[in-house]
Design a protein around this nucleic acid. Structure first.
Lengths: 104, 104
DNA sequence: TGATTATATAAGTGAATGCGTATATATTGA
DNA sequence: TCAATATATACGCATTCACTTATATAATCA
């Protein structure tokens, strides 16, 4: 039987990873496709895909396909303690705004 | 150089462990000594001690010696996003109240 | 249809981690 | 000072996990 506390621990563990927390910080600015995040974070595409899959499984992000691109966005409206975490993340708006944006 | 986002990830990772999050949920009720927590959680004393050391290193708990017992308590007044997590933890008051309390 | 681009999955590897057993340190009280 | 209790540390082991490389799937466009 899954306890609420186990559930919270699972989500917090997901956010307790530098790469994933940075992804979430970027997605706080706006929805991004995988190649955007790869460009922002200077790591491999499979690495980002795997992190996104975990975030999706935990219900923290969802995906929307637009042509050949898949955009990910946050789904935390029903998770207040995650919202509070987001509020304390530094803004990465400048970096997101400087994306080359060849994705469309 | 330590970024704020790395710092947050470190703390969230600590709370993203079922055992540690449960310890924190107990400490939300009141300060407890190590043997109290061992009794509540049905695990080994070294296990609890090691988790408490990590929580202390992250500034989430502090310790106060009282005779041969060392009481741990939360130090989260300056960490709002951790407070919000605490608010969403289920209450474990009943279990804490049923402690045999031979520790004094 | 074939080439290109975007994304996902598979498999392997090295490092981190949670927990147990054994032992050390510290405090109390006879 | 010695025994008992409380807590911390050392060490080993099994598991988890983040990441890389290689490959598969999917969509677009010539």
């Amino acid at each position: 039987m899954e306890q609420p506390i186990d559930d919270m621990a699972e989500r917090l563990k997901l956010l307790g990873d530098k790469t994933r927390l940075t992804i979430v910080a970027y997605l706080k600015e706006r929805a991004l496709c995988v190649c955007d995040i790869v460009e922002l974070m200077h790591t491999s595409q499979p690495n980002i895909s795997q992190h996104l899959r975990k975030l999706k499984a935990a219900g923290i992000v969802n995906e929307t396909r637009k042509g050949q691109w898949i955009y990910y966005s946050l789904t935390v409206d029903d998770k207040p303690y995650i919202q509070e975490i987001l509020r304390h993340l530094p803004s990465l708006k400048e970096q997101v705004d400087q994306l080359k944006n060849t994705c469309d």
